[in-house]
Structures are given as C-alpha cells and as structure tokens.
C-alpha cells in the first residue's frame, strides 16, 4: 500500500521490503509502497459486547483497524449485554460488527493496568511497578509470578 512521505529517509535502506516506485498516476514523482501488516491473531478489549461478538470500542484507539487486518480476532469485554440497542446505551464508542470477531471472552477489568475510558483510569502506580520490574529477568519473573501466574 502507498504511504505519503518516507522517500529519501533511511527506511529505504533499513527496510528492504519497502519499495519506491514511480507513481503510475504522476510518473515524475517517486512514491513509497509498504507491505500491509496482516496479524495472525489480534487481542482487543471492548467496553461492552453482545454475544455475537459485536463490540463497543474506544474511538480513540485503533482496535477496529487491527481487527479488520487480522486473520483471527479474540475480543475480551468489560461486560456482555443483550442487544445492539443496549450496547449503544452503555456509552460513547464505535460499534464493530461481530462478523470481524472470532471469539469473545467476558473479562471485567481486562485492560488493567491500562485504562478503559469512561470505565476506569490507568493505574499509574502499577505501571511504574511494571516498568521497574521489567528492568531485569529476575524482577520480571517475580512480577509474573505475583500478577499473572499467581
């Protein structure tokens, strides 16, 4: 797919899969093409969902784009509601139709320690703890044992 700009940067040297071509619609111009990213699986988290996988998503995030690019989409959600009308009443957001979603998991608090806008804020203290724990393997293992495997 074409991307604006980029021509003449070191991306040409560092990313051989990026191609620079003559623009077929304006041959005097050079244009960069990049291969699309096609994730095998994406994991996204919804504010709410219906059982058919229709999701209410934060419009500030790129979750809908990620879902439409991926072969398999596993969505978690703060809660499951009965109908699309109820979904709209939950709050502000964009609706992603369930046809894009492979599997749905109800997981309240599933975005912690990051945020779900309108539901809970980011946990800054926990994020600081994570950053400190990620500094070396031993402290990171202790973090995983406590919060993930524990």
């Amino acid at each position: 797919m074409p991307v604006a700009g980029h021509v003449g940067s070191d991306y040409e040297r560092l990313r051989p899969e990026f191609r620079v071509i003559s623009n077929p619609f304006a041959p005097a111009e050079r244009l960069m093409l990049v291969p699309p990213i096609r994730p095998d699986v994406s994991l996204i988290h919804a504010i709410a969902a219906t059982a058919d996988g229709t999701l209410l998503l934060d419009p500030m995030e790129d979750d809908a784009l990620l879902a439409q690019a991926s072969r398999v989409v596993v969505a978690s959600t703060e809660r499951v509601v009965g109908s699309r009308d109820e979904l709209r009443l939950v709050g502000d957001g964009m609706i992603l139709p369930g046809i894009h979603v492979t599997a749905l998991v109800e997981a309240a608090g599933g975005a912690r320690p990051t945020l779900v806008r309108g539901v809970y804020p980011a946990d800054a203290r926990h994020l600081e703890e994570y950053v400190a724990a990620a500094a070396d393997d031993a402290s990171f293992k202790r973090y995983l044992d406590r919060y993930v495997h524990g």
């Binding site: 604006a4 700009g5 021509v7 003449g8 940067s9 070191d10 991306y11 560092l14 005097a28 111009e29 050079r30 244009l31």
Partner: peptide
C-alpha cells in the same frame, strides 16, 4: 546516525 525524517528532499519527492 540514522535518518528517520530527512530535513529536505529532491524535487521528485512529493513534499
């Protein structure tokens, strides 16, 4: 050391 964004471009680059 690495040019992520060049300051200037030749005329055949849309800028």
């Amino acid at each position: 050391d690495t040019v992520a964004s060049p300051g200037s471009s030749p005329p055949d680059v849309v800028r």
